[in-house]
Design a protein around this nucleic acid. Structure first.
Lengths: 188, 188
DNA sequence: GCCATTAGGAACCAAATGGTACAAAACAAA
DNA sequence: TTTGTTTTGTACCATTTGGTTCCTAATGGC
């Protein structure tokens, strides 16, 4: 009935996520964004409302791809210990300088944009629940309150780990620290 | 011999630090910055080179004021345990939504500005050494390698704590977690 | 092959940005 | 009081920004 679009929506959003993740919102101007998405101005504004809405779409895509994959890995882990399952959160990454997109979004747009702040908060909760699920599965910490505290602790550590990574420190293996925390949670 | 400046340099820099810390670099336009610093365009460009140089001056001021105070508190702490001394890093703050200026700087300008990245790195090292000093003083962890790893762990936790705070979660008391980590470091 | 409909592309635009120029004012020394 | 110097404030400017317009091209149903 009409001319079909030539670009692939998922590919374009992946490109947007990558460059926003890497450079942030304002540091990515429209030409940069268009290049990363592989489309031109006309197609861009035909398919999306504006730059901010694409950023929010990238945030959603991060949720669908990265956060979901992480949570699924945590849930489906068949390793023998909580430490082994949770270590996926701290494994060295190819491009650690990108940091954590959730943290980046909170820092840059969170204070000024309620939608961004809310989505970041939701993703944070998803991660926390994923961690908590592992602790529950392995019965780390006897009582519920202690478990949630431990989950929070690991979540904080995760964010800190990502923040340091964005700062440029070479990624290290932090799984040993997990052992400490989990061991202590069981002892207490 | 000439007309003296009417504004106080330290007060102006404090204002710049506050608004940059709170809003970030790009979200703070020149009128905002001038308002926060309490001076007008002419005075601004007479006293400073440009907006970026003021941001970097604010970074230095953060180092001089906040980081130095934290390090000094850690060094001068006469409490009876490492946990008590280190808990200052996690005490609830009046305005947690500002987050950690080091992390904010790394996220927003670090990837594009080498000076900012270097200064942030230097402050990170200062904090780490401050933590390490406490561990050394209380002989937490038998060997040096273990101590530095523990210091890194606490530093990561600190950054994560600040990141969560900027996200808007109500600040909680995390000193208990310190106990776990430190206890485990001694046990291992 | 026609035609309605939509994508693609380039020229264009208004607004906001950081930064500059310059004149007036305030001060200190002589 | 005069003079030289520096601050202050306002008007102005060039550039970059995200966003719009509008024309052309391509497609699929009839």
């Amino acid at each position: 009935m009409a001319r079909p679009r030539e670009f692939d929506m998922d590919t374009a959003l992946d490109g947007a996520l990558d460059i926003f993740w890497r450079q942030g919102y304002v540091a990515t101007n429209l030409p940069d964004l268009l290049m990363a998405m592989g489309l031109t101005r006309g197609s861009f504004y035909k398919a999306f409302r504006d730059k901010l809405s694409v950023y929010i779409a990238a945030l959603d895509r991060y949720d669908d791809q990265v956060v979901s994959a992480t949570v699924a890995t945590l849930a489906g882990c068949d390793a023998g210990s909580a430490q082994a399952c949770l270590s996926v959160l701290f494994s060295p990454e190819a491009d650690a300088r990108k940091g954590c997109f959730i943290c980046n979004a909170v820092v840059e747009l969170g204070p000024a944009n309620e939608t961004v702040a809310a989505k970041a908060e939701a993703m944070t909760v998803r991660l926390r629940n994923g961690i908590l699920g592992v602790l529950d599965r392995f019965e780390v910490g006897e009582v519920g309150e202690k478990r949630t505290a431990t989950a929070d602790l690991i979540l904080h550590l995760y964010f800190g780990h990502k923040a340091i990574g964005k700062g440029g420190k070479p990624p290290e293996d932090w799984s040993a620290h997990l052992g400490w925390i989990l061991g202590q949670a069981n002892d207490a």
